[in-house]
Every structure is written in C-alpha cells, then in structure tokens.
Design a protein around this nucleic acid. Structure first.
Length: 847
RNA sequence: GCGGGGGUGGCGGAACUGGUAGACGCAAGGGACUUAAAAUCCCUUGGACCGCAAGGUCCGUGAGGGUUCGAUUCCCUCCCUCCGCACCA
C-alpha cells in the first residue's frame, strides 16, 4: 500500500520527502544518448550574491515547467545550472571585511545551492559549473590565446570609464546615465589606459547576418542588437590640407550633400590636430582651445543636450568635388571613436552642423530640395536653390531627407540615392575616396584592474615584447595571497611572485599582465561546459556538444540583450572558426522574462521592498511560490508581487490537496480503463469534457505560447468543476474509474507547476513512479468536444438573444431559431443579410 | 530625437487567426458553519438607468477618426507610460 495523504496539506514535509526521493533516484540526471531526441533547457546562470531573489525563482520556475513538460513528452532533457562566480561584488565585500573573495563566493554558492534545491528545480546537479575555479577559467585563458593567435585579441591604449569613488575601471554597462552604478551621484571620468580588446567588430557582419537564423528570438532583442551594431553605409572622402601637405579623411552617409559643405569638423583628439597646432601662427591659443573642447566632449558623456562648441583652427581643407576651400574647425560633438573622427559640415542638411554653423556664423548652403518641389527641372544653377539660399538665414532646421540635388555641379538634378552611388564611384575612380561601411559596435575591452577574475595569460618580455603564455603552462593561477585595497591599481601588480616570471621565448626575466578579464568572458561559453563539465583536455567535449547543441530554449532577463547575448554569439562564431563547433548560433529559442516588482519598483535591498523566497518557502512551501510566480502574470511581462495573490495560490493548492486526499483511499486500487464517449453518464461526460479541454489548452500552450497563467487558470476551473461534481461522485453517478482518470490528469498537469504536491498526490492515487517518469497524457479531441453550444444572436452587431443549438445543427435550423429568438427586435424591418459564423455567432443585419 | 514594449473592472490579468469583452485569481459586500474567531463553503460584484419581479435598455477595452455585418484585435492621427540607445556624421 502506497502512502496516503494526511488531512492537512503540509508542504514542508511533502517537499522534503520528494526532494530526497528525487535525488536518491537521480531523476534529474541525464546522459547523452544518440538513440533519443534531446532537449536542452538553459536558464541564465546566477551571480552568487548570497541569496536567491524572486527574479531567480520566476526564471527557474519557467524553465522547470518546460523541462518537466519536455521530459514527460519523452525527450532526453538537459537542464543544468552553475555560477557566474567571478566579479566585483565579492571583491568589494572582501575589502570591507578583510576576508578573501573566494570565501564569500564559495559560501554564497553553498547557500544559494541549498536555496535552489529547496525550490525543487529539476537540475542535474552533477553538471554544476563555477566560473571562478582554475578548471574553468584556464579555458578562458585558452580562448584568449587562440584569439590572440588569430589577431582577435590585441592591446591598445584607450579611454576607459573610471569611477573616482571606486577607484577602478567600470565596464560600459556599469555606467548609468554617465554616473557609476554604485555611486549614482558620482560622474564617471575618462582615463587612458592600455587595454586588451577582443575584436568583436571583425564579426559585426556575421552577427548581423546570422540574425536571420534567430527566428525564435524576441524581435525586441534582435532590434536592440541591430541598433547596437549600428551598421551604416557611407563614403570616405579625402580633403586636402595644402598648408600641411596632408589629407584629412571624412566619413559621410550623405556624400550627395557635399556641394553644401561649408567646413570640415575635427574631433578635438584627431591626430591632425597636433600637427595643426605645431604649424599654427598661434600654437598656444589653439592648444588651449583644443583642450577646452576636449574637456567639453568629456562632459558631453555625462550631460545630455550639451551645447555645440568649437574653434576655428585657421587652416583650410579643399573639397575634392568642387575644389573649394573650407575652414577646418574643431567641434565637440565629433567623436574620434566613430568613423574617421572628422566630418564634412553641411549645415543645410544636417541638424548638428546646422546648429553649430548658426552658432559660429558659418554659411549655410542648400543643395538638396524636396523631390516634388517645383524648382527648375534638372535643378540647373539659379532658380530654386538660389532662392532657398537667399532665405537660408531664416531656416529653422536642416532639411535632412533625401531629395533632388541642386547647385551640385555635374550631379545637379539627380536624386539623392542615385547621386550617392555615382559620386562614390567617381571618388573611387579619381582616387580621393571610397564607399565604406561603419559600425557603432566597438571592440570589447576586457581588461579589468581588479583581482577577482581570470588573469590575462600574457607575459611582457623586455626582449620579446608581448608573449602569450604557452598552452602547456595554463592555467595562470590567480594567486590567493593578495592585499585588496580597491585603490585603483590592479591588485595582482602588488604580488611580486605573480608579476615576476620568465619569458617563455628567451627565458629572461619578464613580468606578467596583471589585469584580469571582464566576467562576461566567463559567461560567453559556460553553457557548452555543462555538456561535459569535467573535461580537462579541452574547453568542451565536441561529441557531447554535437549531441546536445544547439540550446533548444534559453531563458533569462532582457537586461542582457546587448551584452551577454551578443558576446555569447560572438564566442560561438570564434569557436566555429577555430573548428570547435560546426554551427554559428548556439541558441535556437530565446525567451526573456519580465521583472518581479513590488510596490511599483524592481525589488532591491536599497529600496527595502524585497520579498525573500526562502521566507516564502518556509511559510507556504516552494510549490505555492512557484505556482504564484507563474500565475500572477504571463512570463514575458513584469510581475507585481502581491501578498494577497500568493495567499490565493496557497488556497488553491490546499483545495486540490483536500479534494485528492478525500478520494485517494478509495481510488488507490481502482483501474482506469479506456473510456469512450458513448458509455459515459451525463456528469461523467461533463467532467471528462472539462478534463480534456484543460489538457488540450495546456498541451498547446506548452508548445508555443507559454502563458502559464492561463494554464493554471484552466486547472483552477477544472478543480472548480470537480468540486461542483463532488456530490455526483459521492452519489455514484460518477464511477470511481472515471473520477480517478480525471484526478490523475489534473495531477499530471499540476506537476509542471507544483511538482512536489503533484508527486504526493500521484503516489496517493496508487502510482509508484514520479509524475516526471510518466508520459504526458494525450488529450482526446472527442471527449473535449461539446455537443451543444450557446450561440449569441446579434441584430446589427448587438447581442439580442442567445440560442442553444447542437454543434452539428444545420444552417437552416440555426437561421430559423435565430430569427425566432430576436423577432421582437426586428419589428418589421427588412432583413438585409444573415451572417452565420459556425460555432461562434449569428448576426442579423436589418435596414 | 530614434527604436521597441504597453494602456481592458477597485487590483493582477483573460479573450490564441476580426466573432458573446471582463475567464481565472485577488479585493470588497452578503450569507452558512462556530459561543466567538480563523479556516472552509455558498451568493453578489464593469458603469448608468428602467422594472415589484421575471427581465430589459444604454454606455464601456487611453482619445478621436476609418475599414467591416461585426473591432480590445486591422488602418490613420493623437495622448500617456515603461524600457533600450542617444550629438554615430
């Protein structure tokens, strides 16, 4: 005799019992098996911050519902978890308390692991990965060296975001509105540092192109990535600076406007600026101007809508198209990091140039008119353009659209599109320019002046220069005896035995790189490691990857749309080029869940609005918490936490428990046979109809839509129906076998959302195995079907009556019944048309 | 400014491909059980109006227009809100 249920629902006891049993029976473990179809469910790995929060619970409850469903559907499911274990928070905590970051990290991992286990998520814990152990990070180093060998990792001096409070570099993503994410009042300043970069820009085109494979990714994420990459087609044009015998190259997407160019603007840190200063009759003054403008660029990163500032260099550049000389100005809105760091100023057709030129009294010359404007056909010089130019001081804004060229020499009369093509070709033929592609995407700066990360495996030798650590010498271990000061300098630089080494090439004294890697490197490939987490001869096991990849479903927060989710795609492409994998995109389907908010704001310690999942589990049990996380909102939307709401979930599970507990004893030994519609009593029919309708809804929803809130709502309706029919069951009008069939299917549905309770009830109904080992039940369309339905009858679109008709009722009958039902609303008017939508409604149109 | 979500009862939300708006849950009110409370169970619950009642009428998915027999759903204009990017040439 299998266990029977107590009269009271005790989630603590039930959940402990089933978690122990699942673990003992290794229910969540899976192995590659080519004879079976696989399904890889992946959730974004958490940072071990100490405690799980509701956002985690939501993420993992979604993943677990899917993992359980796919397992019951017969797939060989891989469902792993790990730890994004390097990072600044542990280092800061360590500085504060004079302990070691690894202490924090590992104790937090242990704590969070227990918390996750308390939730009963179906993870294969044998595959757990922590990114801060040498067995893992050595492969970060290995990837780095592979990239270095291919020219994809390089070193250059560059500007970094620096927080004066933290005294350390911040990643771009740690800069919020120009300020430090941890010191919201502290503006980030710029510093120049030697940095290691990964050449993600070399993959810009493939990152864009392969998006066509990502048909199962949210459009939102793809759009964000597309904008982030920011491809734009344009033309580079050389202007000659005859006074210096130099050329300055500008980038423009609107070469068609070049006859309207009235200046050339340089970024204040453009390399030409120094040469101009040297040759200037007023070098001191120009240098001071350049400094002033440069400072205002820095400020522009903090403040929005900064005023345009500039300075005339006194030099001129010649426009190769019309031979005209225009002044060279420094401008604070021109960025050295984009394009060539120099632009041609066309105030009539670019809003920024317009504002600048107006502020400094530079001329504005119209060379594009609207295509449909009534100017002289062919746009010969004079006429419309002259009139437009005469009026230009009154112009309120630049005309930035495509149009027709005027006053543009041989190109006058062309439309912009045509002019761009022809003028670019001419520039190429005459050798003063070329068509080109620019991206906003910048190379990924991965150097961090921090301790708690992967050491960059590079040695600097006075004789041999930059020398990568040989593969055989990996890993470069992170030393443990460091002093963490948080004072701006790489902590590793203060560890002599780490820094001092010998050159792998010449054996002479050399020193190591002391920066560590951005932790986004760690998370760019961790999901490969799960397929064989212990492999020590290579970063990944190719056979295992071949079987398990691609990830069928990835689930996580939208905040990683252009960070982790683009780095991860980049890494896979590099891995493809190295020959590690034979595909270019690692994730088939991506799902981004909404945030958990409370009192209108994202839960956070600083706002004091955090609801602790551990406390909630102690109060209601994991099943209730998980159920509520799935019920309160569709998963892609933000979810507002509600104390009353979770009470509702708790009440529902109690109702189900009582319902099943009451019947379990008499149903335990009952055989459930095949039922056919014909031999069902009316109340049996009614019950099974609801059962199969619910099952149909949930089955369809789990495949595609994932509106778990509606699945649970349907399960609640089914429970309501069961309660309503309880008297009929007690009176024997519903046979035990039918009732057991209904309850069994309800339990299997609930096992996706409240697995512990489901297994408890499943056992009490006489089943020795877990719900997870049971096949997902098919729904019976005949049983789900309705025989009779209520049709609304509209008159001119307004519901005036409802009629009961048999599903198979003929149109004639429906029409006749409908007309009868609304006779009094027709009062003599002519029926113009009757629209019958089968099984939906009747609409009678009268005049 | 550009790009992308979103706006439905007192609240969270449902309505999947243009076909009964408000499923399910919460909250609220009433009732049953109880000495009482908790728990549980039952009933009511978008708004306005008519009716003793049975029942009925009108309005209603951010606003205004349009297409359609029929619009929360499609089209146009606008408002509000959230998110991302933001002087990218």
């Amino acid at each position: 005799m299998l266990g029977l249920m107590d009269s009271n629902y005790d989630p603590q006891q039930i959940e402990a019992k089933w978690q122990a049993r699942w673990e003992a029976e290794k229910l969540f473990e899976s192995e590659a098996d080519p004879s079976r179809q696989k399904y890889y469910v992946l959730e974004m790995l958490p940072y071990p911050s100490g405690d799980i929060h509701m956002g985690h619970v939501r993420n993992y409850a979604i993943g677990d519902a899917l993992a359980r469903y796919q397992r019951m559907k017969g797939y060989n499911v891989l469902h792993p978890i790990g730890w994004d274990a390097f990072g600044l928070p542990a280092e800061n905590a360590a500085i504060k308390s004079q302990r070691h970051p690894s202490e924090f990290t590992f104790s937090y991992i242990a704590r969070m692991r227990e918390q996750l286990k308390r939730l009963g998520i179906s993870y294969d814990w044998r595959r757990e990965v922590a990114t801060c152990v040498p067995e893992y990070y050595r492969w970060n180093q290995w990837f780095f060296i592979k990239m270095y060998e291919r020219g994809l990792a390089y070193r250059k001096r560059s500007r970094v975001n620096w927080c004066p409070q933290c005294e350390t570099v911040l990643a771009n993503e740690q800069v919020v509105d120009g300020c430090c994410w941890r010191h919201e009042e502290t503006p980030v300043i710029e510093r120049e540092l030697e940095q290691w970069f990964l050449k993600i820009t070399a993959y810009a085109e493939r990152l864009l192109d392969d998006m066509k494979e990502l048909v199962r990714w949210p459009e939102r994420v793809l759009t964000m990535q597309r904008n982030w990459i920011g491809k734009s087609l344009g033309t580079e044009i050389d202007f000659s600076v005859e006074a210096l015998g130099e050329r300055v190259r500008v980038f423009t997407t609107r070469v068609d406007t070049i006859y309207g160019c009235t200046a050339v603007f340089l970024a204040p840190d453009h390399p030409l600026v120094e040469k101009l200063i040297v040759r200037s009759p007023w070098p001191e003054k120009l240098r001071a101007e350049a400094e002033r403008i440069r400072a205002s660029v820095v400020r522009a990163r903090v403040e929005v809508n900064l005023e345009k500032q500039g300075a005339d260099t006194g030099f001129k550049a010649r426009n190769p198209y019309n031979g005209e000389e225009v002044p060279i100005w420094l401008a604070n809105f021109v960025l050295m990091e984009y394009g060539t760091g120099a632009v041609m100023a066309v105030p009539a057709h670019d809003q920024r140039d317009f504002e600048f030129c107006r502020a400094y009294g530079l001329p504005v010359r119209t060379v594009i008119v609207p295509k449909d404007s009534a100017g002289p056909a062919g746009g010969r010089a004079g006429g419309g353009a002259a009139a437009a130019n005469a009026a230009s001081p009154a112009l309120a804004a630049a005309f930035t659209e495509y149009g027709r060229l005027v006053e543009s020499g041989p190109y006058s009369g062309l439309v912009s599109e045509e002019a761009i093509a022809r003028m670019t070709r001419d520039a190429e033929q005459k050798g003063f320019g070329k068509g080109t592609v620019q991206y906003r995407l910048k190379d990924w700066g991965i150097s961090r002046q921090r301790y708690w990360g992967t050491p960059i495996p590079i040695i600097y030798c006075p004789a041999d220069g930059i020398v990568p650590v040989p593969e055989a010498d990996l890993p470069v271990l992170l030393p443990s005896n460091v002093t963490l000061t948080g004072k701006g300098q790489s902590p590793l630089a203060l560890v002599p035995e780490f820094v001092h080494t010998s050159c792998p090439k010449c054996g002479g004294a050399a020193r190591r790189e002391t920066d560590t890697m951005d932790t986004f490197v760690d998370s760019s490939w961790y999901f490969y490691r799960y397929t064989d987490p212990k492999i020590s001869t290579a970063p990944i096991n190719r056979d295992a990857v071949r079987y398990w990849f691609p990830v069928d479903q990835y689930i996580g927060g939208i905040e990683h749309a252009i960070l982790h989710l683009i780095y991860m795609r980049f890494f896979t492409k590099v891995m493809q080029d190295i020959g590690l994998v034979d595909f270019s995109e690692p994730v088939n389907r991506l799902f981004t869940q909404g945030m958990v908010i409370h009192g209108g704001a994202k839960m956070s310690k600083s706002k004091g609005n955090v609801v602790d999942p551990v406390e909630m589990c102690a109060k209601y049990g994991a099943d209730t918490v998980r159920l509520y996380m799935l019920f309160a909102a569709p998963p892609e939307k933000d979810l507002e936490w509600s104390d009353a709401g979770i009470e509702g979930g708790w009440r529902f599970l109690n109702r189900v428990y009582r319902l099943v507990a009451k019947q379990a004893k008499r149903l335990q030994g009952v055989e459930v046979g095949e039922v056919s519609r014909a031999d069902l009593a009316p109340e049996e029919r009614r019950l099974l109809r609801k059962v199969h309708q619910t099952l149909r809804h949930v089955s369809e929803d789990m495949e595609e839509r994932w509106h778990f809130n509606t699945d649970i709502a349907m399960a609640m309706e089914l429970v309501n129906e069961l309660s309503d029919l309880e008297p009929a069951a007690e009176a024997g009008r519903i046979r035990a076998s039918v009732l057991k069939d209904a309850l069994s299917r309800l339990v299997l549905i609930l096992s996706l959302f409240a697995p512990h309770l489901a297994d408890e009830m499943w056992e009490a109904l006489g089943n020795p195995a877990s719900t997870l080992e049971t096949s997902w039940p098919a729904h019976d369309a005949a049983l789900a079907a309705v025989e009779e339905l209520e049709l609304p009858v509209q008159v001119n679109g307004k519901v005036r009556a409802r009629i009961q008709v048999a599903v198979e009722a003929l149109e004639d009958e429906v029409r006749r019944r409908a007309l009868d039902a609304v006779a009094r609303h027709l009062n003599g008017r002519n029926v113009a048309k009757i629209i019958i939508v089968p099984k939906k409604l009747v609409n009678i149109v009268v005049k």
